[in-house]
Amino acid sequence: MFAQKLEKMKKVLIPTDFSVDSLQLVEYAVLNNPKSKLHIIFVAGFRLPDTRWGLTHFSQSEEVHKQCTDDFITAKRSLMLEHKKSIETISFELFTGENSFAFQNFLKQLNAADTIIPKEKSLYSRNKKWFDTTEFLRKNVRNVTEVPVGRAVEIPQLKFSLINLFNL
């Protein structure tokens, strides 16, 4: 019975930009795993600070806390409440590496084989230290499920170049 219960538990990795829209991925995770108890792990890319002071004082939980807006926390709370039977926990992990090798090591630590990712690029954060982990998840996780995620706010394109000034 205990073994059966363990079998039903599943860790699902979900890329996040700490926006309410990105929580739709959790709903797809519930939809795709109706018979499992889910451990949702939100994965966000995060560039480590450049300074020694920043590195020694870097705290994952503090950074995650800074990123979570009130709306995000409220929506996450509602989601947990609505899917209490399906979702066991929701946790956050920051990936601070830069390449797939680092990401594979990161995955080993998490010991997860499933991921739900958006089909099209839909994650975006104003925080310059944040980066999208969708591609890392797509390439390195065993079971990838791609789902359509709608976004209420359009993703701004922040690339600026001097050449564009003359490129009319």
């Binding site: 519930v30 939809l31 109706p34 409220t74 709370r77 509602s78 409440l81 609505e82 899917h83």
Partner: peptide, 17 residues
């Protein structure tokens, strides 16, 4: 069909297979 109430809202979720 699940009903929950959270922060002034009634949330009804209908999940089918």
């Amino acid at each position: 069909i699940k009903i929950v109430s959270d922060l002034g809202n009634i949330l009804i979720s209908i999940n089918d297979e």
